[in-house]
């Protein structure tokens, strides 16, 4: 088999991406748990974790540029490297959302929460599940799995959107009844919004994986849905 070294390097690159993805999952789950438990130390650790996630993104980018320079990749090799670059960029932003929740928790100070968090942790769990599924599609690179899982991920994204809307409605209701709670409510809205964006980025990863597997680029899940339907 020719290009064994190149194949090895691509596998290492993918392993780095999987590690980065694991760190991002960890960051989101920890940030939500810290918010729920009002654990400032834990939030601080999430912020530190984001620095490590940023470093991995830089490493992956350098690795990709090196491979492009050395190997002049073409066809599926080129798509694989481009996809890795794009996904690592998505993961970096997702890490920022987790970090954002950590900062929100710190900004909220020692005050107790407006109410016990139920929907926000659920949003976090669903979003992490979406990320796992999207990364799994990328790693498997199989068209058959893509169709079913893509539909599932889109449904989960809708669920996250609905939960976000529900949270915002509830919080606005609280503020309407007691304007002194506006600041605390806004913090929680930010947290919810961050998770909703995190989930959106998971669907972006799904789209990147779609490009890798099919060779067709597209914009947005509507187009993906059309492809799945056809």
């Amino acid at each position: 088999m020719a290009r064994e070294e190149f194949d090895k390097e691509l596998s290492i690159l993918e392993s780095q991406l999987v590690i980065m993805s694991g760190m991002v999952e960890d960051a989101l789950l920890r940030s939500v748990k810290a918010l729920k438990n009002r654990d400032i130390d834990q939030s601080q650790r999430v912020i530190e974790l984001d620095d490590r996630i940023d470093l991995i993104e830089v490493e992956i980018e350098r690795f990709c540029v090196d491979l492009i320079r050395k190997e002049a990749p073409i066809a599926s090799d080129l798509r694989r490297i481009i996809t890795i670059l794009q996904i690592s960029n998505e993961l970096e932003r997702m890490g920022d959302y987790a970090e954002g929740i950590g900062k929100i928790n710190i900004m909220m100070g020692p005050e107790p929460l407006l109410k016990e968090l139920i929907d926000i942790p659920e949003m976090g769990n669903i979003s992490v599940d979406m990320l796992k599924k999207s990364i799994n599609i990328f790693m498997k690179k199989e068209m058959e799995n893509l169709n079913e899982t893509a539909t599932e991920i889109n449904e989960l994204d809708n669920k996250v959107d609905s939960l976000n809307e529900k949270i915002v409605t509830e919080l606005l209701e609280i503020v309407k009844n007691d304007s002194s709670k506006a600041e605390k409510a806004t913090y929680l809205m930010w947290a919810s919004h961050n998770i909703e964006r995190f989930a959106d980025r998971s669907t972006n990863i799904l789209e990147r994986a779609f490009y890798l597997v099919s060779g067709d680029s597209f914009h947005g899940t509507t187009e993906l849905q059309k492809h799945i339907d056809s």
Partner: peptide
């Protein structure tokens, strides 16, 4: 042909895995 070959032999050739 160069972005997304239809034939797997083309894919193997253009990516340098055969030939």
């Amino acid at each position: 042909v160069f972005d997304n070959p239809k034939d797997e032999r083309t894919e193997a050739y253009v990516t340098g895995r055969i030939g």
